[in-house]
Nucleic acid binder design. Structure first.
Length: 673
RNA sequence: GCGCCCGUAGCUCAGCUGGAUAGAGCAUUUGGCUUCGAACCAAAGGGUCGGAGGUUCGAAUCCUUCCGGGCGCACCA
């Protein structure tokens, strides 16, 4: 609702500026005054114009105010306009009219045409998911929820994919561990998988340790140089076998990576995170996506053969952010990015360029085969295959815009892919390519010590320490979630002994997920999260459970009052609201309504900046506002029936928007807690 | 050396495209459960917004520079 009023106001101002001063401003700032007593909206536009019109800001503001006030009927919801301070244009809303609109759930719509592809999670399938992967998946999933069509907004068509690098060195390393450290064959690997399944041992946890052992095995200082060289060669041979396919080594890799992938999907589903499609690198290789991309890149002159210098014999591309060499000079661009090695194999960036051309539907004659991989309650998750089989899915390529949730350490490679697209003349695709970048999750030294990792004195002085899958150093996603559930469970057990045990577990799980998802979303993307169990396990203050608790409190009121939020809101048009909002005394009620009406505005802000943290912040602020309201007004004891009905409706409006906001954050509100 | 990010209260972080007295949470101190549940609320203390210049009516926000920290810069993925 707030958004609607804002939009009509801005349109009106711009029309006036054009007519009166012949000025058109693309962007107009709108704020909220420091106190509600000054109004609901503030426009600093007069300051902006002061220079250009060579007039005092206050004088301009006065002119605009007069102009706007002349036809208030053109501004629905606006009660008055006045000049304040050094030249602010302060707008007061018609409170009761606005409350009526909010009660009827009128709000601006969000959405548009086009298909948007979001890639997130993308964990190498050779180890358990850790807290860094959680940040990625939670960011991506939340953003996807903000875009997707639902009952609140028209939204955008979206596809969610999780890229699986099943033929890379990381998987190869685990295969090296199985074959060369554990002495496994294809047959005994199968036995191992059944054994792990029967003893309820997680394959991803098993691989976590094995991967760390292999990494250590490659660099064992006690070994002679020849032995280490032999081990490195084993690694390269294994990687080569995976890329080629059609051998026992590749089959072992496929068994392991698929089993680990299934665990990842389970882990993420615990957090209500789901996918539509799992494109795998193995198909990008076997379906020769790169060949089509290379042809295209050569045609467009983006890719060229280097004939001299250190990259002689390689196909290279100008690196992102460099000017390259002058035309006609013979000096090789030493800084160029190698795409095809001198031995003819393609690098990671090359494969990524091919993959991204596919995403935009720009890779001629190439598509994945698809088959069903996993069934969610509401939809199917597909996986790439070399040969299509059975029923076929909706189209996943041909995106109009893409969002890649990938951590900031991948800035360079991502920029190279964009540079390739741009170089090929696909400027529109390049413009609609969003690297949804975020900083890593690291551990505080104290946390690392608590977990029993040896930390050097130097590291102990740092504010955080980077996690490392290679070293097996980090906090596993499922372990963290289990600890959160246990902590929430013990609270629920003591607070609600009357509830059945399974129900208590459900509630504890909802609280744990709420705490975890909120924790990962409350930081803005480019803040490094220094992870600490004390903060992550907290259910108080600025946390998910705080918001959940506010919703539960509201629910209790309606239950005891023997009514529903819907009924309470429906009663608003029948009430005489005037004496309750249109004075200073009614300001705290009004502020609750006003804040409740800002969800659309906040979502649009999140989408425009690719920053879900704003929504987390909003959910918390609204819960704070509600809790304050809750303590100030004892609704059930209220004797004036009109006042009681208005208080109930106020609680209902806040509860409705808190629930929605949490829904977009992927957090459910438990019935009790 | 080059590129990106960060530096705001004791700690962890917000502060949107420059705007009205710099805000939260945690921690500390204090007050509030016979009340719709205290996973809560209220209050207090606590900040030269890393330093220095500059642009502007106006800078935590933009520009320059310096200091401190992080992460990237392979014929690895």
């Amino acid at each position: 609702m707030y958004r609607t009023i804002q939009q009509s106001l801005l349109a009106r101002i711009q029309a006036i500026l054009l007519a009166k001063y012949d000025i058109s401003l693309a962007q107009l700032a709108v704020e909220q005054p420091p106190s509600i007593a000054l109004g609901e909206l503030a426009l600093p536009v007069a300051f902006e114009l002061a220079k250009r019109l060579r007039k005092a800001p206050r004088a301009i503001a006065q002119e605009l105010a007069t102009e706007l006030s002349a036809d208030l009927s053109a501004l629905p919801g606006v009660a008055s306009i006045e000049v304040a301070g050094a030249g602010y244009l302060n707008i007061r809303l018609h409170r009761t009219a606005t409350v009526l609109e909010i009660a009827q759930d009128k709000h601006a719509d969000i959405g548009g045409p086009g298909f948007r592809l979001i890639e997130h999670t993308s964990i190498n399938p050779n180890k358990a998911a850790h807290i860094g992967h959680l940040r990625n998946a939670i960011l991506g999933d939340t953003f996807q929820r903000l875009l997707r069509p639902d009952t609140f907004k028209r939204g955008y068509q979206v596809g969610v994919q999780n890229y699986i690098d099943n033929t890379g060195v990381q998987v190869a390393d685990v295969v090296v561990g199985l074959v060369h450290l554990e002495g496994k064959t294809l047959a005994t690997t199968l036995e191992l998988l059944t054994e792990l399944a029967s003893t309820n041992t997680r394959i991803d946890y098993y691989c976590w340790d094995l991967y760390a052992r292999v990494s250590q095995w490659y660099t064992e200082v006690s070994q002679p140089a020849e032995e280490l060289a032999r081990r490195k060669q084993i690694r390269l041979d294994t990687l080569h076998a995976l890329e080629t396919g059609g051998n026992d080594t590749a089959t072992i890799a496929d068994l392991i990576s698929t089993a680990v992938l299934r665990r990842h999907l389970e882990t993420m589903e615990r957090l209500s995170i789901q996918y539509d499609f799992l494109p795998r690198e193995s198909e990008i290789l076997t379906l020769h996506f790169w060949d089509a991309a290379r042809t295209l890149m050569l045609e467009k002159g983006v890719l060229y053969l280097e004939t001299a210098g250190k990259n002689k014999g390689c196909y290279v591309m100008r690196r992102a952010g460099t000017d390259g060499q002058e035309e006609g000079t013979d000096v090789p661009d030493e800084d160029a990015k190698v795409i095809v090695r001198s031995n003819g194999t393609v690098t990671y960036v090359g494969k990524d360029i091919a993959y991204h051309l596919w995403k935009f539907g720009l890779l001629p004659g190439k598509d994945f085969g698809y088959s069903k991989f996993h069934e969610y309650p509401t939809h199917t998750c597909w996986i790439s295959t070399a040969i299509p089989s059975g029923p076929q899915p909706p189209t996943f390529g041909h995106a109009d815009a893409i969002y890649n949730v990938i951590d900031s350490r991948q800035n360079d490679p991502q920029n190279n892919v964009v540079a390739a697209l741009r170089g090929m003349g696909y400027t529109e695709a390049a413009d609609r390519y969003t690297h949804f970048s975020y900083e890593m999750v690291a551990l505080t030294p104290r946390c690392a010590l608590d977990l029993g990792y040896p930390i050097s004195e130097e590291d102990q002085k740092r504010s955080y320490i980077e996690v490392s899958g290679r070293k097996g150093f980090g906090v596993k996603a499922d372990d963290l979630l289990d600890r959160l559930i246990a902590a929430a469970k013990s609270e629920v057990d003591t607070r609600h002994p009357e509830i059945d045990a399974p129900e208590r577990l459900t509630i504890a799980t909802q609280i744990a997920v709420g705490a975890l998802r909120y924790f990962m979303l409350r930081f803005t993307r480019n803040t490094v999260i220094a992870f600490d169990f004390k903060d992550a396990l907290s259910f108080e203050g600025e946390t998910g459970p705080y918001v959940q608790y506010a919703i539960v409190r509201a629910a209790n009121i309606f239950r005891k009052a023997n009514t529903t939020p819907e009924e309470s809101l429906a009663a608003i048009p029948t009430l005489d609201l005037s004496s309750f909002f249109d004075n200073e005394h009614g300001s705290d009620l009004w502020e609750t309504w006003l804040l409740s009406s800002k969800l659309t505005l906040v979502i649009e802000q999140c989408l425009a900046t690719s920053e879900p943290a704003y929504l987390a912040k909003y959910a918390f602020q609204l819960a704070q506002q509600f809790n304050n309201f809750y303590h100030r007004h004892h609704i059930l004891n209220e004797t004036d029936p009109t006042r009681k009905a208005i208080l109930l409706a106020t609680a209902a409006a806040a509860q409705r928007e808190m629930t929605r906001a949490l829904g977009y954050l992927g957090i459910e509100a438990p019935p009790v807690m």
